[in-house]
Design a protein around this nucleic acid. Structure first.
Length: 455
RNA sequence: GCCCCGUUCGUCUAGUGGUUAGGACAUCAGGUUUUCAACCUGAAGACGGGAGUUCAAUUCUCCCACGGGGUACCA
């Protein structure tokens, strides 16, 4: 049983803005967010930009933007470069209490001597309990008197982390498993500062297909890239949650609410997980199919124009209407959808298609005269359906009996081709209901004309 | 090198001292179908190796191998 925190938990996601938010970071953020939400605590974003050279403002902005897009915005945000005075105070205190000392030594790169702050290592064994891995013990002797600050004002990573976690009242540190080896020295600093020890939970890393830690080398590894490829946040969140965590049941598709409800640290995996785009594709389809009109319009706007001059009846609303059936068929991402539209793949939804006679006759498998008869009959049947009731169900109902009687393929194939002009397309009922009744009759009649022309 | 963590189908994972080792994605085959999908059914596919503990180890212990992480005046 997971212990319910007896105080309001405060957790943080602490990336360094030296690159765009990638899936590994996003998942760490997600686990922190879920944990905070579940226990009604606070989720804090802390930008660790003490490396002035590699940290970039644009990356900090990307982290913010992607967290918002994913639907896991922080409750509070801090930036280390703005907290110099706080660090200075603590460094002074450590120096004063002889827990650290100034050391003049040759500059690491370049010439001359430089004065750094070294931690006075008590050289002892440190044990800590990890919520996911159990007890872990390190001998810190080999760490030596490690450097904790460049000078009296500029702390290095480990010091800044400890000071901030203390100052921000962090109760649980949920971070990537590459932080395990860093934990003992942070605990050493904590003890010197007389700061309480938070609870640790090291989650496994997300790996690339080469089993190495995911890095910028993998193009699909940034959230920004996934977004650009047409994955929606619901799918990305769902997939990331399942990478390293499982609900203990066989459920695979989750909404954010369900994740918050079911998430727990106990079911977090110990070993690294390879990022597999195939399963993301599957989840993207699943979530794409259950989008509300409002959500759908929002996402589609990023990939498709509001209107297409060559297709007067094109609209995003109409795209959203037919999206589920397209996603079910051959499109996994919005980028693929956009490309298919640009390639004219779905133009028949918005404009009369170019129809070929041999296609109408199923490449010669159907009899021409017979097909003419069937299409004429279908025309009569369709005409009888009131315009207002021209739905997928009613069209199917109306045609079904006749089609079954004479052979479904003989009626439905030419009908479908007359409407789409394509060898492969959604079924004629869906096509008919998507188009106006009038347009349907026009297309069928055009098909008939084509068949009768040279007969 | 040293330290730490890990190891169940191709991938994500469930699970137990005695199970036909379960599910999902992907793959393949049938069925269904007006087409392609979808859908349904089925198939194939895993406990890294070696000792030990035990009546019995995938499960517990140790060793090894392999993988990963850390070892900065990076974070």
């Amino acid at each position: 049983m997971e212990k319910v925190p007896n105080q309001t938990p405060r957790v943080r996601f602490a990336p360094s803005p030296t690159g765009n938010l990638h899936v590994g970071g996003a998942r760490t953020a997600l686990f922190n967010f879920l944990f905070a939400q579940k226990h009604r605590g606070a989720f804090i974003l802390r930008l660790e930009d003490t490396d002035r050279i590699r940290s970039k403002k644009e990356f900090a902005e990307d982290i913010h933007e992607q967290l918002n897009w994913l639907g896991i915005p922080p409750d509070e945000t801090y930036t280390q470069s703005e907290r110099g005075e706080i660090y200075e105070k603590y460094i002074g205190s450590l120096l004063e209490h002889n827990r650290a000392y100034l050391s003049k030594e040759p500059a690491k790169n370049g010439e001359g001597k430089i004065e750094v702050v070294r931690f006075r290592n008590p050289n002892k064994e440190i044990s800590f309990h990890d919520l996911i891995r159990g007890d872990i013990t390190f001998d810190t002797t080999e760490l030596g008197d490690f450097v904790i600050a460049r000078n009296k004002r500029e702390p290095l990573y480990h010091l800044a982390v400890v000071i901030d976690d203390f100052e921000m009242g962090i109760t649980h540190i949920i971070r990537g498993d590459d932080g395990i080896s860093n934990t003992p020295r942070q605990i050493l600093i904590q003890e010197a500062l007389e700061a309480p020890r938070p609870l640790y939970a090291h989650i496994p890393l997300i790996l690339g297909t080469d089993r190495a830690k995911l890095s910028k080398r993998f193009s699909a590894s940034s959230i920004n890239t996934l977004r650009g490829r047409g994955y929606i946040p619901q799918a990305v969140i769902n997939y990331l949650a399942l990478l390293g965590w499982n609900p203990g049941t066989e459920q695979e598709v989750f909404s954010m609410e369900a994740l918050i409800d079911q998430f727990d640290l106990e079911h977090v995996q110990k070993s690294g997980a390879i990022f597999d785009i195939e399963k993301l594709n599957w989840l993207n389809r699943k979530h794409l199919m259950s989008l509300s009109m409002e959500e759908c319009l929002g996402y589609l706007k990023e990939f498709l124009p509001e209107s297409i001059p060559a297709l007067p009846s094109f609209s995003l609303e109409k795209m959203c209407d037919i999206l589920p059936s397209l996603v079910e068929r051959d499109v996994a991402t919005l980028q693929e959808l956009s490309k298919a539209i640009q390639d004219g793949e779905y133009h028949y939804f918005f404009a009369p298609p170019h129809v070929e006679k041999h296609m109408l006759l199923q490449e010669g498998k159907l009899d021409q005269q017979e097909t003419i008869t069937h299409l004429k009959k279908a025309t009569h049947i369709l005409q009888a359906i009131p315009e207002k009731k021209f739905t997928q169900e009613s069209v199917k109902e109306a045609l079904w009996e006749y089609a079954t009687e004479v052979g479904r393929g003989k009626v439905l194939w030419p009908l479908r081709v007359a409407l789409s002009g394509k060898k492969y397309s959604p079924d004629p009922f869906l096509l008919a209901s998507t188009l106006e009744k009038r347009e349907v009759l026009n297309r069928v009649s055009a098909g008939l004309a084509l068949l009768e022309k040279e007969s």
